[in-house]
Amino acid sequence: MSIWEFANPVRFMRLSGRLLPYLVVLTVVSLVTGLIWGFFFTPDDRAQGAAVKILFVHVPFAFLAINIYFMMFVTSLIWLIRRHHVSALAAKAAAPIGAVFTLAAIISGALWGSTTWGTYWQWDPKLTSFLIMLIFYIGYIALWDSIDEPDKAADLTSILCLIGSVFAIVSRYAVNIWNQGIHQGASLSIDREEHVSNVYWLPLMLIMVGAFLLFLVLLLLRTRTEIRKRRITALQAREL
């Protein structure tokens, strides 16, 4: 099966409809198990105490906030190059999820910062680039809503998305690029010496999987809604 089969709205609705029940079960199981494990059954950190438990809500949503923008970048490019409507609608559907995940990461990060840095906010490169990314998400959603003609809206929002992707990349690598500010480096790394202890890493991985599945479920549901809305508009236009 080719990924381009999803570009056909009828096939997308059929395949996503079949997949969704399984994905919902997997999401609930992995997220609930991971969060209970992380919150109730992990020890306090020697330096951070119980504040380390914020890791389990901050890191997965911050990681996804950046990667959802990357997904929107890819689907926007597909729209601009191949004109597949489902890819433009998938980008549209992903934006509110990305905005909420970014906001969740900023709030949990501010609360974490208040205990470890002694401040909720500082104009640090990582924090600032995350805030700019949130503004891009909101701007992207507002631009879609402000243009009536769907193809024109898809074109302009795709261009905005491409511009905003610079900040998504900066958000990911801000600590490495500027090597300053209060935010520490990545908690997760391919190098096992660099990432957090296994006591935290295992439940964190489970929550990461759950949060990704949650994104996938919400993305499929929202894209299905956008496809239906297109069909509704087409049927209403026939009535006029």
Partner: peptide, 17 residues
């Protein structure tokens, strides 16, 4: 779990998310 002086921050993070 005993959250001590971090209770507001930890519960606030989970609650808001």
């Amino acid at each position: 779990p005993e959250l001590g002086r971090y209770a507001i921050s930890v519960l606030g993070s989970y609650g808001s998310t």
